[in-house]
């Protein structure tokens, strides 16, 4: 894996962390919880190198 690809995994990981943190802070909107989780699914699968 080259350096640039590693950066992309780091960016993806950062997004997952931000989404996760927002999800934990979310108290009100079930809508936003669902959307946050949905967005996280492909990012997590990319980090796990599944797809």
């Amino acid at each position: 894996m080259n350096v640039i690809m590693i950066f992309y995994y780091l960016i993806t990981a950062a997004l997952v962390c931000l989404l996760g943190w927002n999800l934990i802070r979310e108290k009100k909107s079930a809508n936003d919880m669902i959307l946050g989780l949905l967005v996280m699914i492909p990012l997590v699968l990319r980090l796990l190198r599944v797809k």
Binding site: E26, A30, M33
Partner: peptide, 18 residues
């Protein structure tokens, strides 16, 4: 959306589903 009655419970259920 209306404030949820049990936000944590809802969140856990949704997370398990996801």
């Amino acid at each position: 959306s209306k404030p949820l009655a049990h936000p944590v419970r809802v969140k856990i259920v949704l997370a398990v589903l996801a």
